[in-house]
Amino acid sequence: MGRHVLLIEDEPNIVEAIRFILTRDGWRVSTHGDGADAVAVVQRLRPDVVILDVMLPGQLGLEVLRALRADPALAALRVMVLTAKGATRRKAWGRMCL
């Protein structure tokens, strides 16, 4: 697996923190702060891993996740979801989307 990660997150300070950690660990980190066109960015950059903030405003995180999973060309893509809630309910819908 390659080491290119795309971080989809709208909080600049969280982006900075994660970018710092992953870069030190040898990853190439791209970031994108807007959920609205996130799917197009993934399709263009073709990262090996996507880290997606599912708490993006307006249910955007959930929609992005669904759209990514609906695209057969992205079947091999690994998606990690980022959430501050960690509730079982979120885990449940995360599984539902996969």
Partner: peptide
Amino acid sequence: LHEVLSAVSSVRSTAAILAET
């Protein structure tokens, strides 16, 4: 709630970096 949780997450990740690096 989203606003508070986002700020908490940000503080937590940044503080973790400062403490552990």
